[in-house]
Design a protein around this nucleic acid. Structure first.
Length: 599
RNA sequence: GGUCCCGUGGUGUAGUGGUCUAACACGCCUCCCUGUCAAGGAGGAGAUCGUCAGUUCAAAUCUGAUCGGGAUCGCCA
């Protein structure tokens, strides 16, 4: 070993010991004859003093040290001079009085400082990710992620789960997201796909009698990126046999509570996790991933709004649309600037517009509302009576701002749920130490796709229809709810699972609703259906996003921050410069010809 | 595929038609300095303002295209 002690370890109790440390020159303070170095390794910082009276040659060499040089230093741990202690550092009571210095490697001046305080462009950070990761914050995130996966291994092992690896090269199944594909050299014109998730494989493992499976599994999707989406992400994938929905939920709830308690000191988490049906969640929050840390629930005000003289409302209703809204507490005094921004925000979510009605705080109550208390661009179309009724329906109080969106149900919900989250941010209603988990369950199995003019799986095709809804499977698929459940935390989807179909006939009927032909079914899912005919146990499980979990635990917005080597929004790795062309020889070997898009 | 924001020395920003021969902070280089810890002091180097085209007597600044980063809708679990 190049060192016998880590930089962060020396304390007053170890004063007098002779140690050797190794690490990076974090900062240099050169006083001419007296030179200070903050030496950094993964454990922290240690102040090192080069004093010519004790270390002539080392001191001379120290004059040449620069940021990020790698050095090995031998010396004696000494107590700092009285008044020279640094309470900011765990090692701040002591310092290393140097007797020997070895320069292990030199460094160019780094493109940016190794400091948490500095805000560097993402492209630069990723290009020099190996330096970016030296920053204490990034080191912390790497370790947090490790702790989380370690707890998953420990906990699930204790519950009788075994970790099984499934292949990365599998078969392309075009439903769901776009596949990443890998050409086959041995089979010209044929391709593997990278798994979007190990779904079918883990179900086969249930048929194999594994009973309790988990995997920290990499999943690949060739879709556009977001702050919370990367081309490859990691899931805690788990599956259990002989279980009902509650059994899966109980395991996950226990694990996630443990993880939050252990990794975020001072966190609050409510148990048992509250549960909402999909229908209730859509009704109250306009989304299937509600943030329960604050109120501002949505209300449907279609009839009342349409009864006003506002033609925008009437038009939307006569074309079958919906009008919904919520009250933003204390925002009744918003000026033009603020409301303009909200309108802009609503439009960026797809709204045609946003109607707001401000109620002045001087109103004694909603019942006592007078014309002077109301401010709205639609004011001349809104009688005091209508505003009163709207306020009552939306739970608005004097001083509040009512935000109203009209349009198709889907659009209204998208806009309002985004707006609700935005208002919570503006009003600072969210606390990062608060982990508000919620189970959303009873999802519909299918949803109608207007573009394709057919039923599509709402989540995935392997979820079991609820027993009492089986009767609608062929007659009214939209009515069929499934034993499908999502885990949501603070407005982010943390994972999704279901009790699976384990019966060949039911699975075939579900495929039939989506419109797969028998040939397509046997081509894509033959192996699973065949397995179902050999004694498949009832089973269910979940896929839980690891990146999102770690990001939520760390209070990070983008999962890029918790992935060691992520890609940019255009799916590029600036460090390796991937993707990249391959040689003509490689193409030939793979039987592939490239056709560039016309520009 | 759409919309929005951003792109100026190594890093982060200021500058929104002429006064820019581009400013500031940090970093970097040289020198001084024995108690600093975001050390201090003195001096210095470093930018054709992402790229291309256009408007103009004149462009970092206006316009268009393009490239790159970010956010988001669609898409995606």
């Amino acid at each position: 070993m190049y060192k016998d002690t880590n930089c962060g370890e020396p304390r007053e109790s170890t004063v007098g010991s002779q140690i050797t440390v190794a690490g990076w020159v974090h900062r240099r303070r050169d006083h001419g004859s007296l030179i200070f170095i903050d030496l950094r390794d993964r454990s922290g910082l240690l102040q090192v003093v080069f004093n010519p009276e004790y270390s002539g040659s080392a001191h001379e060499l120290a004059g040449s040290l620069r940021s990020e040089w790698v050095v090995q230093i031998t010396g004696k741990v000494v107590k700092r001079l009285p008044g020279a202690e640094n309470p900011e550092l765990p090692t701040g009571a002591v310092e290393l009085s140097v007797t020997g210095l070895v320069i292990l490697n030199r460094s160019l001046t780094p493109p940016f400082e190794i400091s948490d305080d500095i805000d560097v462009d993402d492209n630069t950070r990723l290009k020099y990710r190996f330096i970016d990761l030296r920053r204490p914050r990034m080191q912390k995130l790497l370790r947090l992620r490790h702790r989380v996966t370690h707890m998953m291994w420990d906990f699930l092992t204790g519950k009788g789960f075994i970790h099984v690896e499934t292949p990365i090269l599998i078969k392309s199944t075009p439903e769901g997201a776009r596949d990443y594909v890998v050409p086959s050299r041995i089979h010209p014109g044929e391709f593997y796909a990278l798994p979007q998730s190990p779904q079918q494989l883990k179900q086969l493992l249930m048929v194999s009698g594994v009973e309790r499976y988990f995997q920290i599994a990499r999943c690949f999707r060739d879709e556009d990126l977001r702050a919370d989406r990367q081309p490859e992400h990691t899931q805690l994938d788990l599956e259990m046999s002989f279980v009902h929905q509650d059994d899966v939920m109980a395991i996950v709830e226990e694990l996630y509570t443990l993880i939050v308690d252990e990794t975020v000191p001072g966190s609050t988490i409510s148990r048992p996790f509250p549960r909402l049906t999909y229908a209730e969640s859509m009704e109250r929050f306009g989304t299937d991933k509600p943030d329960l840390r604050f109120g501002m629930e949505l209300s449907t005000i279609t009839e009342t709004a349409a009864s006003s003289d506002a033609r925008v409302f009437q038009a939307v209703v006569s074309s079958g649309g919906t009008i919904r809204g919520f009250a933003a507490p204390g925002c009744g005094n918003y000026g033009r600037r603020d409301t303009d921004r909200l309108v802009e925000f609503a439009k960026s979510s797809g709204a045609q517009g946003l109607v707001f009605i401000a109620i002045d705080e001087s109103a004694a109550s909603i019942d006592a509302l007078e014309d002077d208390h109301i401010k709205s661009p639609l004011k001349k179309f809104l009688s005091v009576d209508v505003v009163k009724r709207l306020a009552n329906e939306m739970g608005a109080k004097p001083g509040d701002l009512m935000l109203i969106v009209a349009g198709t149900a889907r659009l209204v919900n998208t806009v309002l749920s985004n707006l609700r989250n935005e208002m919570a941010r503006r009003l600072e209603l969210v606390d990062n130490k608060d982990f508000s988990f919620v189970w959303v369950y009873d999802f519909p199995l299918f949803e109608w796709d207007d573009d394709l003019d057919k039923w599509e799986p709402a989540h995935h095709v392997f979820s079991s229809p609820k027993k009492e809804h089986m009767q609608y499977l062929d007659t009214d698929p939209g009515k069929v709810l499934a034993d499908l459940y999502d885990l949501v935390c603070n407005g982010e989807e943390m994972g999704s699972g279901s009790i699976r179909i384990h019966d060949k006939d039911i699975q075939t009927r579900v495929f039939g609703v989506i419109g797969y032909t028998e040939d397509e079914i046997s081509e894509r899912f033959g192996q699973l259906l065949t397995a179902f005919t050999y004694g498949a146990p009832p089973h269910g499980g979940m896929g839980l996003g690891l990146d999102r979990l770690v990001a939520v635990l760390a209070g990070e917005r983008a999962i890029r921050e918790v992935i060691a080597f992520p890609k940019t929004q255009s799916a590029i790795d600036p460090l390796f410069e991937a993707p990249s062309p391959i040689t003509d020889e490689q193409l030939e070997e793979l039987h592939i010809r490239v056709v560039m898009p016309k520009t």
